[in-house]
Write a protein that binds this DNA or RNA. Structure first.
Lengths: 252, 252
DNA sequence: AAATTGATGATTTTATACAATGGAAAGAAT
DNA sequence: ATTCTTTCCATTGTATAAAATCATCAATTT
């Protein structure tokens, strides 16, 4: 018997059309997105079309289209005639993403939560359990998927596909940075799990006003902790006219 | 003397690189965007790459890239292997755009308005005057530019470039539909001007809470009127779980 | 020494050609 | 007559080649 050669997905990416993708550019975008989100391509890294094309075994045209697509998701900046750079967000820009979540997610919550079914709650319970395990094991690769699933399941009945997709994209953009925080600070990890659990409980009990309030606090806690962390690292005083504090949260 | 041949911009579009655009695809995107926004390309219209390429005097590749860019702005849907279709928004989808504006614009307003300068007020006064004239003359081609300028000037100090660009894009998307309303209903036109004028006055007087409240009402009035108009036309009962009413507006 | 100009090469952008896809029409089967 | 299958063709997606842009470096000028 000849030895069996094990091919791991990450060792040798298969980038192409198939069941998952109708076009090569979609497949390339998915792979590049994954690499940005998992940190393989770090902020400010320059992505070369020819290198990616050679690696993925395709021409540069679908790579260009993939990069354009990722630019519209906020993950890349494309500078004309100079190429694509992985976005590095300043503390202020990260904060803005959280501000935007704080503006949009409560709306989705209140429109959707009253319509959640028992099947949804089963799914949320399962997702929460997996999230808790991933947090405990510091398994950073699945945090965002599970966090996104938790939030998106709660919002699924909001009848606001545009806002939902905007939030989904914000979650993806935030994840690169949320990982830093959750990796660094044990207490923040445990609190995230606790808050998810309580949000779910309040939904089950039909206490939506309290649920939405906690959802806001949950998002804000991450915002505050992350900005603190980033400012400690940068030690740059925040002098912008609108900076310093987030939106006016009526925390009763 | 030979007769002077007058070349109008709209009669013979010059689509290309120059001072305005670094790439052909940017130039094409701008021209196509303009045509979508001014109604030349109506909702559900199919845009063919080869036709556009021939008309603009360029190859299909930058056209493809332009179409991708416009898809990310929400103006087009690109169906793999089937081409690009101008987005037609249902009444619910239009309403969602307004809901999103109602969530985001007050935040921008409150962060920015206190920082407006006398120079800003001069500009706003001028813009308002031009807007008023355009409304009076039912000059639909400039309404959105002036409306956008009014809103964007107020928001310029919000230190939230991402939210600002999201709102700018929402304004562009709403415009195709707001025109229907404003063209149809005289009273709505006059009220829009009145509301803009009063918002500006409240800003000058430093009465920001009242200003933001009126801004919300202003946006909501258009939403309500537009949805009424669309429902009268469609005569389809709204049975969606989250439909019927907008966000919970605390109108004191 | 500093500033300006020109040349070069790497990379991106676009043009042209070829391949792939999906819808419509035609033909075959029931 | 209706339904299913096959073929065809228009259009899109991708590959390859050529053109354009920009950053860097060397040479020249001030």
């Amino acid at each position: 018997m000849p030895p069996i050669i094990s091919i791991h997905k990450r060792d040798m990416p298969v980038v192409g059309k198939g069941l998952k993708h109708k076009t090569m550019s979609e497949a390339a975008a998915a792979e590049i997105r994954e690499r940005i989100l998992d940190g393989t391509y770090s902020p400010e890294m320059h992505l070369r079309q020819d290198v990616l094309a050679a690696e993925f075994g395709m021409s540069r045209i679908p790579i260009r289209e993939a990069l354009l697509s990722l630019e519209s998701e906020g993950l890349l900046n494309i500078l004309p005639h100079r190429g694509a750079v992985v976005v590095k967000l300043s503390a202020e820009e990260i904060e803005e993403l959280f501000n935007m979540r704080l503006l949009l997610e409560p709306f989705l919550f209140l429109r959707s939560a009253p319509h959640l079914t028992s099947s949804d709650f089963s799914r949320l319970t399962k997702t929460l359990s997996e999230y808790s395990a991933a947090i405990r094991e510091v398994n950073v690769n699945t945090w965002n998927d599970l966090n996104t699933e938790f939030h998106m399941t709660i919002y699924k009945y909001a009848c606001s596909p545009r806002i939902i997709s905007t939030v989904r994209n914000l979650l993806a953009e935030c994840d690169r940075h949320t990982r830093i925080q959750l990796t660094s600070i044990t207490a923040d990890r445990k609190r995230a799990v606790r808050e998810h659990r309580k949000i779910l409980k309040l939904c089950k009990q039909g206490r939506y006003e309290e649920g939405v309030q906690l959802m806001k606090e949950h998002i804000d806690h991450i915002r505050v902790a992350l900005i603190d962390l980033l400012h400690v690292r940068q030690e740059v005083p925040d002098a912008s006219p609108g900076g310093g504090s987030a939106i006016e949260l009526p925390i009763d």
